[in-house]
Design a protein around this nucleic acid. Structure first.
Lengths: 337, 337
DNA sequence: AACGTTGACTACAACGTTGTAGAAACCAGG
DNA sequence: CCTGGTTTCTACAACGTTGTAGTCAACGTT
């Protein structure tokens, strides 16, 4: 049923190694021999056994991408780009869903490295630098978080600056009671904390006070949590005239809650998100957001990983920044800006 | 750095095979020997080399899931469930993105089977039964399409009945000029065709004529295509009072286009989708849809694949149906039904 | 004609694991 | 004390591939 080098070799009348050489494009093979081997390969529909090749070479050609949840659009879009970028280098991507819990993430960070993958691109939610120390030296690239003095390469965007910029955008529209949705009691360095920092710093620059009552936590960043947080803000009587949601799904939930309350967006409350997901281009109203360059993030991550795998594993960790863009849309600027 | 059975064996003072036996839970090992081996395993942080194990056993513990695009919410949600269901059986899922093109899908269907995976769950867009004949016997489960007399197991939902049901829902609301968005010139059997069939059959039952002008094609089923198709329908002067979109992303695009035109949903035009994606619960207005039981689909697919891998590979292909539910929401029923 | 160099190919071992066969130690029943 | 069966463990080969070392012929140079 399934053929091996040996079968091809017998059919072509050469040694196994010669077939292997043909398969791997080794230069010194006579044209007629090569042709005979290729004919045999085609006739038997030979394809190499990757397990055996991996065992021999110590490489698998597979990298893993670990994200919290696949059906959060941001991660789905990111995954798409990572798969594409990896394919260009001839790699296959194994996608892992951590669920975002600390224990599960720890398992992925240490256990996934069971020799089956050459490297890991990891987008952690709960882990901190301390959790990432003991890694058997499997190359790893971290995404999205600034894990200070982390033990691995990482690709970041400047969350603080981006959050400041989008908050400034709201300030620039004349909004004065700007709420935030999505704060979390997470360790220093996580996205929630950084985006909160940017928000606070923009408020301070604008001479607006920081009001704890305007900051709504969200344990996870799903649409339902955004809607719940928005309802909570509205019912608590603080009456914001703008909301900065720490990601787009929260913002879509907030839009929905505002719609149900009968408030107009942006006239009564302006809404801004973060992530630049596709949904935001088609929501009613369309969503103002910070759009990180996901393609760039994916490509940088794959390249960093490639360098690690093929190059010096003991080189000091590198940190690369990916660009982002503020994309003003209807949810802050109205229909005809 | 990385330890092998041999290292553990030396440390515990036993043979490699005994360590292997401990690792694999073989029964006849003396308790004290087992303890010594386990101590050594822990001390060296030993983890088996899967490539070697795979080579020896002919199994990898990895199954592949091939979907057209990861950032189409339906597939992202499906992927999530497949990963979860597979994890319960101790399997890892390798996710592949085909792009939906026929050639790429053919490559996946034949090429992914490079000995690295034990089986494949495949959600094809363009392939037909004919493309799936020559598969080297790698177990495969097809999703979503009714590939008639196909060579593999598949999990389907009754697209025709579901489409008829949601069209009936629109008819029941008193709509008479019901448009459809998403038709494709695809081979017999693909989703687009089946959903169109259901739509036509419901119209016929209701005594409403079939009007070609009310059916808008969409080459792919993204939001932008739904918006474009809706605009096209509106500008062509046919004035529908309802639209059945062949999936939810098309419907979200259509909602957006209607909003831009100033038409009210559902008062002027009722909108229905298909897929039951999470977005539809939070859109403005919320989206009436056919929601297939994705968790069930995923579990059935994984179980079928498990049977195929562990059981009789030459058994005749099986077809299992997963249930779906009509979920009426604001886009057809209005705010307070 | 003898020499080294290159090209074309092959035999063999090794990657880390597990199945098979079997040896050694132990046990129970006569 | 022997017999037959079980338990506990081990040596060896094999899975399919590729790196290393090497053979042999053809070639160009002295």
């Amino acid at each position: 049923m399934r053929h091996r080098l040996k079968d091809v070799a017998e059919r072509a009348g050469v040694s196994v190694k010669t077939v292997s050489n043909v398969v791997n494009g080794y230069a010194h093979v006579r044209p007629d021999t090569r042709a005979r081997v290729e004919e045999a390969i085609a006739a038997l529909n030979y394809r190499p056994n990757l397990s055996a090749r991996n065992l021999r070479k110590g490489r698998t050609g597979i990298i893993a991408l670990a994200v919290p949840e696949l059906d959060i659009p941001y991660f789905a879009e990111l995954a798409r780009h990572v798969v594409s970028a990896a394919a260009e280098l001839g790699w296959t991507v194994l996608i892992d869903q951590t669920g975002g819990g600390r224990e599960q993430e720890r398992v992925v960070a240490s256990g996934i490295t069971d020799h089956l993958i050459d490297g890991l691109i990891f987008s952690p939610l709960a882990l901190t630098a301390d959790d990432l120390v003991n890694l058997d030296g499997t190359p790893m690239v971290l995404l999205g978080e600034r894990v200070d003095r982390g033990p691995a390469d990482h690709v970041v965007i400047d969350n603080v600056a981006a959050a400041r910029e989008i908050t400034n955008h709201l300030v620039g529209l004349g909004r004065r009671r700007i709420a935030a949705i999505g704060s979390q009691r997470t360790p220093e360095g996580a996205s929630a904390r950084l985006r909160l920092d940017g928000y606070r710093s923009a408020l301070a620059e604008a001479g607006l006070g920081y009001d704890e009552a305007l900051v709504a936590p969200a344990p996870v960043w799903h649409r339902a949590d955004g809607a719940a947080a928005m309802r909570h803000l509205l019912s608590s009587g603080v009456r914001p005239d703008a909301v900065f949601c720490f990601n787009d799904t929260l913002a879509l939930g907030a839009l929905r809650a505002l719609h149900e309350t009968g408030l107009r967006v942006p006239e009564d409350v302006a809404v801004a998100g973060f992530d630049g997901i596709e949904d935001g281009r088609f929501s009613v109203p369309t969503l103002t957001t910070i759009a990180p360059d996901k393609e760039r993030i994916a490509r940088l991550a794959v390249e960093l990983l490639a360098n690690r795998i093929e190059g010096d594993r003991s080189a000091p960790p590198r940190e690369l920044a990916a660009p982002y863009r503020l994309e003003p849309r209807e949810s802050t600027q109205g229909r005809h800006p």
